[in-house]
Design a protein around this nucleic acid. Structure first.
Lengths: 244, 244
DNA sequence: CGGAATGTTGAGACTAGTCAACCATAGTGG
DNA sequence: CCACTATGGTTGACTAGTCTCAACATTCCG
């Protein structure tokens, strides 16, 4: 199905590098997509893997009666299309102006058998994707709206260019956030307002979030995940100092 | 992290056969577990993969404040422990009297590099596991209590020995079902009663469910998944005839 | 400037959660 | 054999958080 995996481990080359090295004419495989454009739809045959080069994509599933669940957001370096042979269960769409490298599966498999390093990286990627769904599931299944949004913002901040950046730009709209978190847009909106009124964040624009109190946000977010919060966590003292 | 994958494709040997063939002293690796006994805990180093031989296991995640999410149930033939290098994020426990084959990771990896078929089967298994989480997530994020339980029963019936069997034995207790579905035990209990009162199921014992109207149950379950319902679906006429 | 799309806010409804009592079953020990 | 207890499951009354529906505000474009 595909889940993000750009969590590059320090000591290993990231999957993107391995893949681009494995394909001789890699640049020719890169295809641009406009906002909302579909990369792969549910039911399409699973012919390729996809590597995000630029922009943001989403993996979505719809129900017959219009409900929607965003299963994952994919950022540059993430691989998606990791679904079992047959047909896709997930629709992959561009969120904004973005680009994907489209990698034929048979060629990937061929190279995997040749190259243990690539093989391990792909397998590791699939297991990382699964690990991400654990927190996502816990969150969707067992958390309040506040915890969900706090988790989402904390995760986005951790994954953004500089993990210490306190400004998060939301490429996706409220509906995407809502469908990712298993909420409605109204609840997402209300919760943003709540966070703002409490001084946890400020919202200079609708699509830009300034995290004023990362500590408090992380505490809320961590309620569902007893383990370490995502990304580097600083002490409360640091946080207070940073805000001051 | 680990998700079930015993969906054996007709034309390929199942992962269990490949693995047992790959390990010369396979039988010696099989370890029995009693109800509630832990196979692997959160934070433990990821040293092994596990193949269910007998009984039922669950993959669970806890929060600091006691909330619990069951991420998956593992049945014989399922592989689990598929988490990225490092430490487990999921606790794996036996639900009843059960047994696991414990397969050292380094040996698996070694054999994967040697054996493209095993490699493909493991990779395919990981992607299948991811695919299962899509429906699970959709369900937990976007469905009513009725839809969730209907989905659960439909899935169990499809996975049980004979997919046409209308009797489903629940090895797990209500709390496990609730935590798998993101509900409370009270809601699960009430929904069972509701189904019984509507004539969809009968409950000869607390742990045994007779599915009287698989069609109606599948329709409820399929509401979240526009695609084909799990398992063989018969026409309404067949169903009515079978019930009559 | 007007219109469409996106986001926010409010009021009320409703589903599922909480808390508490009760029931069923299976052991256990007198 | 029968209390007695422990565990698991059911039911009821009430609460609360989120959804729904509707109005309104904002932003972005042409």
């Amino acid at each position: 199905m595909a889940y993000a995996f750009n969590h590059r481990t320090k000591n290993a080359p990231c999957i993107g590098e391995l893949l681009s090295a494995a394909f001789p004419h890699f640049d020719a495989l890169i295809v641009p997509f406009g906002p909302g454009q579909e990369v792969t739809g549910e039911g399409d045959p699973t012919e390729n893997f996809f590597l995000v080069m630029r922009g943001l994509f989403r993996g979505v599933k719809f129900t017959c009666d219009g409900r929607r669940q965003v299963f994952a957001f994919y950022m540059p370096g993430d691989l998606c299309g990791l679904e079992p042979e047959g047909s896709h269960k997930l629709t992959i769409e561009a969120v904004d102006c973005a680009a994907m490298a489209i990698l034929p599966r048979h060629a990937c498999r061929f190279r995997m058998n040749d190259d243990p390093e690539l093989n391990a990286a792909l397998f590791d990627g699939a297991t990382r994707a699964l690990a991400l769904t654990i927190d996502h599931m816990m969150m969707v299944g067992r958390s309040s709206a506040e915890e969900r949004l706090a988790w989402f913002l904390t995760m986005l901040a951790a994954r953004s260019a500089s993990p210490n950046a306190r400004a998060v730009d939301l490429a996706m709209q409220r509906q995407d956030i809502a469908d990712y978190l298993g909420l409605t847009i109204e609840t997402v909106s209300r919760t943003f307002t709540l966070f703002r009124d409490r001084g946890l964040v400020s919202l200079p624009h609708k699509r830009r979030v300034l995290i004023l109190r990362p500590d408090a946000l992380a505490r809320l977010a961590a309620a569902d995940r007893d383990a370490e919060p995502i990304g580097p966590v600083r002490s409360d003292e640091d946080m207070e100092a940073a805000v001051a």
